[in-house]
């Protein structure tokens, strides 16, 4: 239908506009920071070099230019696929991202699927058995998880499972002296277990509560009541009506809340010393590594935007389906 493609087009246009604005905002904020970039580059040793050296360095780092000029320079680099140079890792930003992003994507992807599956199942059960003890327990649990500071939960997991019970490794993505891909699959899963569990549990609450509401709605609808009145079993009703009407909204919601998962990965990766992009981002922020932080911001904005775009398209498709049916 033309109206739907028009709606998707205008939503897409708005998303692109927002993406450009986000990049501008992030660049302005970073160039506004009162931290002296020269000092940050020299690791706090700004008095160790002479004035002419300082001027030369400022020129090399293009600090003598205005914010607008630097932004133009950065944008023209971006157009050529050059994201700048990371002073923290002493590598081009693109290669830092290339080494750290896959690990983050794996962590986020697993938690995304985990919180979708677990959250949907809990929400489904709570909705079907509304007002039972199970429903109340699930609701209390999700309320607890909304309030839970994720870094504290991660610390508790380490204290309990890694230190007290010695079931899981204390840190990192691989045994000492190995890279992530060198280890066996079992060892990979072993190292991923706690970070993924933390992220999954912390980001599960919205999907549980949303699914519960939706399931209760569907169960109270006329067609389900009709179907039940004709003697269809609850199992059949759930399979034919409830899941069909509640799974897609849950997936849409999960795409739309992608940003929170990404934010959570910053914390989980830092606490577990997991060498992903989130931990690099925190390090870059603490070391005022502007180029790296900017590159990471761009990547995270892109990921959030693709999540939002998919959510928009899916929900439009969903509305269209419902309209045609």
């Amino acid at each position: 239908m033309p109206t739907h493609s028009y709606a998707i087009l205008s939503a897409g246009f708005r998303l692109v506009l927002l993406l450009i604005l986000v990049v501008l905002l992030a660049y302005l904020l970073l160039s506004w920071t009162p931290i002296d970039p020269l000092n940050a580059y020299l690791g706090g040793n700004v008095f160790g070099i002479s004035e002419p050296q300082k001027a030369l360095l400022a020129q090399q780092l293009s600090l003598d230019q205005s914010v607008g000029q630097r932004l133009l320079h950065w944008l023209s680099g971006l157009a050529r696929g050059d994201l700048g140079f990371s002073t923290l890792y002493q590598q081009p930003v693109s290669s830092v991202i290339a080494t750290h992003l896959p690990l983050s994507l794996l962590l986020i992807g697993l938690s995304w699927v985990g919180s979708l599956v677990l959250g949907y199942l809990l929400g489904l059960l709570a909705g079907i058995y509304q007002d039972s003890w199970l429903d109340k327990a699930v609701q209390r649990f999700s309320w607890l998880m909304v309030c839970m500071p994720s870094f504290w939960l991660a610390m508790l997991f380490i204290s309990l499972f890694s230190i007290a019970l010695q079931l899981t490794p204390v840190c990192c993505a691989a045994p000492i002296g190995m890279t992530f891909s060198e280890q066996s699959v079992l060892s990979m899963l072993h190292h991923l277990l706690l970070p993924v569990a933390t992220l999954t549990v912390v980001s599960m609450a919205p999907i549980v509560l949303h699914t519960r509401e939706k399931v209760i709605d569907v169960l109270q609808s006329d067609y389900v009541q009709y179907s039940l009145a004709h003697g269809d079993s609850l199992l059949k009703v759930v399979r034919f009506h409830v899941i069909r009407n509640s799974l897609l909204p849950a997936i849409v919601l999960q795409f739309a809340t992608f940003a929170e998962l990404f934010g959570g990965s910053l914390i989980a990766e830092t606490v577990f010393s997991f060498p992903g992009l989130g931990a690099s981002m925190v390090k870059a922020g603490l070391a005022s590594d502007t180029d790296l932080l900017m590159g990471c911001t761009l990547i995270s904005a892109l990921m959030v935007f693709s999540g939002n775009l998919i959510a928009t398209v899916l929900s439009r498709y969903f509305i269209q389906e419902a309209g045609d049916a």
Binding site: V22, L30, E260, L266, V282, L293, A301, V304
Partner: peptide, 13 residues
């Protein structure tokens, strides 16, 4: 449209 924590980091910097 930015992850909340990232926005907080950028602002506080």
């Amino acid at each position: 449209s930015l992850p909340h924590l990232l926005l907080l980091i950028l602002l506080s910097l």
